[in-house]
């Protein structure tokens, strides 16, 4: 008898857990009012588990253009480049988000700030032309906005959608190794995403991989 009860309890627990995970494609009807801010963290962790490794990382790796190619595409028209290779954020005037990969010599490094950055020279002119954000403070929500899997309409409100952006930035910075010692002069290879509103805007990359070469 107790065994049956226990089994039943286990089943309930198991179903309860798996039930919690199916939130990604929730519709307005399924969105119960109980889905308030108190459930945000758990819901977002589930969403990350479903999307980060299985979908987002492969998508970024697959779509990442070499720096020079993306620069050329953007230079001949941001809108066209965006439609061909990127994804626009939600709303008018939102930035175009692109996946990009490349390598360059580290010519600037700020590893003391809470917003750590590396400035790379990818075209060998001696000046920094790509800035990698190494966190923990990361500007923007390019990882979220590049992804085709997250739609603002399916989120309760701005806050929940914002928490996803922050969580993605946190996952990304956690998976990137901060270089030991002085990185200046070394070569760094990266894959990541950028958000730009104009062709002339400086590139601020949210990297998902970073490899230091001597």
């Amino acid at each position: 008898m107790t065994r049956i009860l226990l089994t039943a309890a286990c089943l309930v627990a198991a179903f309860g857990l798996s039930g919690c995970k199916i939130v990604k494609t929730q519709t307005a009807d399924e969105k119960a009012p109980a889905a308030d801010a108190s459930g945000d963290d758990a819901r977002i962790q589930n969403l990350l588990a479903e999307t980060w490794e299985p979908k987002l990382v492969p998508t970024i790796n697959e779509k990442a253009l070499p720096v020079a190619d993306l620069r050329a595409a953007v230079a001949s028209g941001l809108e066209a480049a965006g439609k061909a290779h990127g994804k626009a954020g939600s709303g008018a005037g939102a930035a175009w988000n692109f996946a990009v990969k490349g390598e360059g010599k580290v010519v600037e490094a700020n590893l003391e700030s809470r917003a750590r950055t590396l400035g790379l020279d990818t075209d060998a002119d001696g000046a920094s032309d790509v800035t990698l954000q190494l966190g923990p403070v990361v500007k923007g929500t390019a990882l979220r906005d590049f992804s085709p899997f997250y739609d603002f309409t399916n989120f309760r409100d701005q806050i929940e959608f914002a928490k996803l952006g922050r969580a993605l930035n946190d996952v990304a910075t956690a998976s990137v190794q901060i270089p030991d010692g002085d990185p200046i002069g070394k070569t760094a290879a990266f894959t990541g995403v950028i958000a730009i509103r104009s062709a002339s805007e400086a590139w601020l990359v949210s990297p998902i991989t970073l490899e230091m070469k001597p």
Partner: peptide
């Protein structure tokens, strides 16, 4: 300002308050 349901209004255009605050 948003409302708590989707599929009722055609558009809901709101300022990105979180992005602005950042």
């Amino acid at each position: 300002r948003e409302i708590t349901a989707s599929g009722v209004a055609v558009s809901q255009i709101v300022s990105n308050n979180y992005q602005g605050a950042q």
